[in-house]
Every structure is written in structure tokens, then in C-alpha cells.
């Protein structure tokens, strides 16, 4: 790897811990549960704090660069292309769940 390459690498999917396929994500609850696993694995976020009204930045300490990493992760999860624009309005855990649900439906 070029030492100065900026790579948004995502080695978490190889661990298989939360690499659920989209068939397991049928309800909001299942999506939320999967998201809890992902956030713990990527950002060491306490799963108990991952509730729909929680704000990503203020409550969970997930900043804009983390959000970009998260989008890459969600792309792997859903198998769909996720555009950062769709995530511009995302503020809370509930917003993320809704966004994943929408991705899976389309």
C-alpha cells in the first residue's frame, strides 16, 4: 500500500461477525440489531446506547469521517450502491435504520 494513499478500507467484513445478508434484515428491529453490531465493531460504540433517537455525532461520537466509513460498510451489507448524498440528512440511529430499509426495498 502506498503509505500516503487515503484509503477508506474496511477490513471488518472479512471477520464475518456481522456480515449478514439482506435476507436477514426484514424488520426494523433486525436492521437495528445488525447496526448495533456494526457500530460496536467499527467504533466501539456501546450497543445499549444505539437506540433510534440517539444522535450519531452528539450521542455516539460518530463524526463525518466515521460516517463515510459507515457508508462503505453499509454498501457491503446491503449489496446496494449507497451515495453519500442519501446520507446527508442522516442525524440519528433511526435515520440510518430508515435509510437501510429504503435501500433494501429499492
Amino acid at each position: 500500500m502506498n503509505p500516503h494513499d487515503i484509503t477508506i478500507s474496511n477490513r471488518t467484513n472479512s471477520t464475518g461477525m456481522t456480515s449478514m445478508t439482506s435476507n436477514h434484515l426484514n424488520s426494523k428491529e433486525e436492521i437495528l440489531e445488525t447496526l448495533r453490531g456494526i457500530l460496536e465493531e467499527m467504533f466501539e460504540t456501546d450497543p445499549a446506547t444505539v437506540v433510534p433517537p440517539a444522535l450519531l455525532y452528539d450521542d455516539l461520537d460518530i463524526d463525518s469521517i466515521d460516517a463515510v466509513d459507515l457508508i462503505v460498510r453499509l454498501k457491503d451489507l446491503t449489496g446496494r450502491k449507497v451515495s453519500p448524498e442519501e446520507f446527508k440528512a442522516v442525524r440519528t440511529v433511526g435515520d440510518v435504520v430508515a435509510a437501510i430499509e429504503k435501500l433494501l426495498r429499492n
Binding site: 477508506i8 477490513r11 471488518t12 471477520t15 467499527m42 466501539e44
Partner: peptide
Amino acid sequence: DAAQSASPVSILVR
């Protein structure tokens, strides 16, 4: 060194 670690980049950053 991210290449030497099993943790995701976001954890190493923290």
C-alpha cells in the same frame, strides 16, 4: 500501521 492490525481503521484512529 493499519496493515499490521486486525482492528478497523476507525478504531486505530480513536
